[in-house]
């Protein structure tokens, strides 16, 4: 809709290099991977998928992947949501402490972090020593090479991705809103439930989408903390390409994982749009 006198909008040209780059080196390769999993363009066959979904072991892998991602996300929300408030309320050195403990662990790579957790979680490790010293248990609790250990490590790596988006919406909250509600006689539970929670929903959606998609795709953490016994889609992808050299299986599993991630992205965008429309 150009009106006379209005300048033609040429700003899109600025987006061309970035979008072009990702189209050629990211979207196109992913598209080709998708085509290859159907054996296109030479033929069209869904046999790889029939084989994949016909094998109960693969359903077990999918279930492992989804369950560990869901548990990781749930725990991240459980501790990340209150922690975001603590970060927002804190001042001075306390705030510096919070910020440093969010940013500094990023300097230790996931590989080293996961390995550090194996030291903490092993049966003669610090955590078991502490549990026994405090009298919670008489003999070491098996933590490493279990799903509990995996969730322990995964939440540790991903919880900043829950705290940051929630914190960024808490910061925008107008404290006068809660005050006004209190003055008008609303109880604290009512204020939280009807005012604070709804206003932080965009941050919660962003955090859940972030953590869930990262946890779905995690590879290094389960490899080090659980190992081969707990197969996830990512581990199956790496195994088929790097050890089995089975590219057909690899590309099929890759597409399955890709579809899960796309669903998370699309669903979170849709939910965020819905929330925006309601407020």
């Amino acid at each position: 809709m150009k009106t006379p006198g209005e300048q033609k909008d040429r700003t899109w040209i600025l987006a061309a290099p970035g979008v072009g780059y990702l189209t050629v080196l990211y979207a196109l390769p992913l598209g080709l991977l998708l085509l290859a999993s159907f054996r296109l363009p030479e033929a069209f066959s869904i046999s790889a998928y029939v084989d994949f979904f016909g094998d109960p072991f693969n359903w077990y892998i999918i279930w492992n992947t989804l369950r560990s991602a869901l548990l990781t996300t749930a725990f991240c929300l459980l501790i990340g949501y209150p922690a975001a408030f603590a970060l927002a309320w804190s001042k001075g050195w306390l705030q510096a402490l919070f910020l440093v403990s969010l940013i500094l662990p990023l300097s230790v790579g996931i590989v080293v972090k996961a390995f550090a957790w194996t030291i903490v979680l092993r049966s003669d490790g610090v955590l078991n020593q502490a549990l026994m010293a405090l009298g919670f248990t008489d003999e070491p609790v098996r933590l490493i090479f279990t799903e509990t250990g995996l969730i322990f490590g995964a939440v540790n790596v991903f919880v900043p991705f829950m705290i940051m988006p929630v914190y960024s919406v808490i910061r925008l909250l107008d404290p006068r809103l809660a005050e006004a509600a209190r003055t008008l006689g609303a109880g604290p539970l009512y204020v939280f439930w009807k005012i604070i929670l709804p206003l932080t929903v965009p941050g919660i959606i962003a955090g859940i989408a972030f953590v869930f998609s990262l946890a779905l795709a995690m590879y290094v953490i389960p490899t080090l903390l659980v190992g081969e016994r707990f197969m996830t889609l990512s581990q199956q992808i790496a195994r088929s390409y790097l050890y089995l050299r089975n590219e057909t299986l690899g590309s099929t599993v890759a597409v399955v994982l890709l579809v899960f991630s796309l669903i998370v992205i699309v669903a979170s965008q849709w939910l965020a749009g819905k929330v925006r429309a309601n407020t």
């Binding site: 998609s213 779905l216 795709a217 790496a238 690899g250 994982l257």
Partner: peptide
């Protein structure tokens, strides 16, 4: 800009953050 599809571009450029790294790696 005031051209259509700006939200889509922004989502597209940020999307690798939420995509499985192994899959991006293999595809590339």
């Amino acid at each position: 800009g005031r051209f259509p599809g700006r939200t889509a571009i922004s989502t597209f450029v940020v999307s690798p953050l939420m995509m499985p790294g192994l899959v991006i790696g293999i595809a590339l």
